[in-house]
Design a protein around this nucleic acid. Structure first.
Lengths: 199, 199
DNA sequence: ACCGTGTACGGAGGCAGCATCCGTTTTGGG
DNA sequence: CCCAAAACGGATGCTGCCTCCGTACACGGT
């Protein structure tokens, strides 16, 4: 008899459960991309071909659905991170990481809001808390490395740049044009970079 | 006979209209302060002692109500601006202006979103467009003055710092603690300030 | 003081989205 | 093939948005 870690009976997951879950994730991702994180969950359920109750059974809250969709998206993201970690230039690694994170955060319009809420509350029941903490601690790593190499001011913390990336992602989500965003990114970069003393 | 600018008959505004409008504005401000810009308009109407239709007749959209409430709030704001303009230190004037604007923008949680939408769309029908444009052009003034005095990098535009202020206000609205906000403000200030060449 | 006009009011109602309950269907092990 | 457990999904109640339309009230004139 199948047993799980807790010593209870284990059954192979039912086929319809997996099917529905996959359909929901796929549809939800499309709707999040198109209409932002505030999209109608009823519409998602209908388009996925399930009733509303099925959606809520799989994902009790909007945040849970969001976290699950982000999970599927994070594969590409971690691959990108692996590429970044091979860089020996800590300053460029930080820069690329921030950009990657910003793109991740602006995947769906409105995504930064629930993420910030999760980052603040530290509620273990909020499914977004974990991905959020990962982002913050990773940023801190890159910042420390760049600081050791003398590229970043000592007063800067990883969390600060996480906030900055969230900000840029938020602004991006409001539809601001790319040119303005670029100038804002430059402004932030000027803010955290150690001024070159050899000039 | 009373005439208005268009040459049409003019009547003194009815007493109940003014009363209702004032009650709505007062109640709306309280609700915006307490629950953010997304607060229930039905609840506002009920607490102001009027029907929903009366609210919508006075303020056809949520943005219209928001703009009217902001209007009443802006008196204190312009007074503050008058105080700033008397400063002869352009760098400090800019700094104080940015801080004043940030506080104005974070008066109600969620306020930056509709404001950014108005800033982007430039829709003349959106009642938030005008206050928004005022903020942007004022920021530009302060930036130019500070640049003439050599305190701010030439690459920085007023709109950039408007965006930055919106960002900080947005983050503030998500409930981030003041300590983190201060570090973010420092980061931004380091970003726009001209590095002192005499060091 | 009263009256008529036109302006403003507000309850009722249609609509959309959220979240849940419970009778029914599906699934897969025995 | 059967049956118990598991999952499904339509129906439902709720809240908030916004509008329509019959009613009440305020104001200017007499």
């Amino acid at each position: 008899m199948r047993m799980n870690a807790g010593g209870q009976q284990e059954r192979r997951p039912r086929a319809d459960v997996q099917r529905n879950r996959a359909a929901l994730l796929e549809t939800a991702q499309r709707h999040f991309l198109q209409h932002g994180v505030g999209t109608s969950l009823e519409a998602v359920a209908k388009e996925a071909g399930v009733g509303p109750a099925t959606l809520y059974r799989h994902f009790p809250t909007r945040e849970a659905l969001l976290a699950a969709v982000l999970q599927t998206r994070s594969e590409e993201f971690v691959a990108r991170r692996a590429g970044i970690e091979q860089l020996d230039n800590a300053a460029e690694a930080l820069e690329r990481w921030l950009r990657a994170m910003e793109e991740y955060l602006s995947a769906f319009s409105g995504l930064p809001d629930p993420l910030m809420a999760a980052a603040r509350a530290q509620d273990p029941d909020n499914p977004l808390t974990i991905p959020c903490d990962i982002l913050i601690s990773a940023t801190d790593q890159y910042v420390r490395a760049a600081q050791r190499a003398g590229h970043v001011r000592a007063s800067v913390q990883g969390y600060d740049l996480f906030l900055a990336a969230c900000s840029v992602a938020w602004i991006k989500g409001t539809g601001t044009e790319e040119k303005s965003l670029d100038r804002l990114r430059m402004l932030i970069a000027s803010g955290y970079r150690e001024q070159d003393p050899g000039a």
